[in-house]
């Protein structure tokens, strides 16, 4: 498997074309940018040129949202397009989700949950093996935000991810907002989850904002909306994780109700400050 370098152990942001001019004019742009793979699967045009400009000033992470790793069979065309994209832009990192999004040819454009059983573990591992082999690189797998659980689940999510990482050699992408959202939705303690998480395999962290609602029976319901700043609880959990693991590449995701560039840049600086504090300690 080819070596592709690493994301820096600093803060990055999800790239939005609306911020492009301010990013290239910035004195200190973020250390890396992450883009959704599916937005860059056209043959040409300005979006690829923007990506080349960004990659000239910062590291690049390609984040897939449509491979359906937990689905029935991987879409070979989609996988080939991912391989082409990675070949073309040589990102430092490729990541996807522990989720499914396709069934019998329909694509649902959402990260859907899967039960954690021996059978789904085998399938996810087979799909990651296939992906890493076609892309000729390691990938990272991200823990999902979920709203339902499955009666048939026989493994915890953290054990499931630990087994996937050890069997396939993939790294993990720890989304701390997803942990917080799941903890509220499924009434568990986020710190217990993080204590059980296979931190040795974590190579990137995601931070994002979520929406807080009550469902119709009055139970708290958090939705992973990526449409606002990271909440204080998640910042606290993040600082605790970094204190334990040391600095990790950390991405601010903000995909909806996209803010002005300085707002997003400030979120990244806040993560960077936590990372630097830990770097100084070391």
């Amino acid at each position: 498997m080819t070596l592709h370098g690493h994301l820096p152990q600093r803060a990055g942001v999800g790239f939005k074309p609306t911020h492009f001019a301010e990013i290239v004019a910035a004195v200190r742009p973020p250390a890396f940018f992450e883009v959704h793979a599916e937005n860059y699967m056209g043959a040409g045009g300005p979006s690829h040129r923007q990506l080349e400009r960004l990659h000239a000033i910062a590291a690049l992470s390609v984040h897939g949202v449509g491979l359906s790793i937990g689905g029935d069979a991987l879409d070979k065309t989609h996988l080939a397009q991912l391989a082409h994209l990675c070949e073309r832009h040589q990102p430092e990192c490729f990541s996807e989700h522990l989720a499914w999004s396709t069934h019998e040819g329909a694509f649902f454009n959402d990260l859907l949950p899967l039960p954690y059983t021996r059978a789904t573990l085998d399938r996810v591992c087979a799909h990651i093996d296939e992906t890493q082999s076609v892309l000729r690189r390691r990938m990272l797998l991200e823990n999902p935000a979920t709203y339902v659980l499955f009666e048939e689940s026989e493994l915890s999510e953290t054990d499931f991810l630990r087994d996937v990482a050890s069997r396939t050699g993939c790294g993990l992408l720890l989304d701390i907002n997803n942990v917080f959202v799941c903890a509220a939705n499924h009434a568990f303690n986020a710190r217990d989850y993080l204590a059980a998480f296979p931190m040795h395999a974590v190579e990137e962290v995601h931070l994002a904002g979520h929406d807080e609602q009550n469902d119709r029976d009055g139970a708290a319901l958090l939705i992973d909306t990526h449409n606002r700043p990271v909440c204080d609880h998640v910042w606290r959990l993040y600082a605790e994780v970094i204190a334990q693991t040391g600095p990790l590449p950390t991405l601010i995701e903000w995909d909806n109700d996209i803010p002005a560039w300085p707002v997003l840049a400030r979120e990244a600086e806040r993560a960077e400050a936590i990372l630097l504090r830990k770097t100084a300690d070391a």
Binding site: P115, A187, L221
Partner: peptide, 28 residues
């Protein structure tokens, strides 16, 4: 075969996915 934590409605939880999928595609 779905489960929700105590006090939460499975229907309401599943509706989040339904809304994400349908509204998300309409928004697109």
């Amino acid at each position: 075969g779905l489960r929700a934590s105590k006090g939460a409605s499975i229907d309401a939880r599943f509706a989040v996915y339904r809304n994400n999928v349908v509204s998300g595609l309409i928004d697109a």
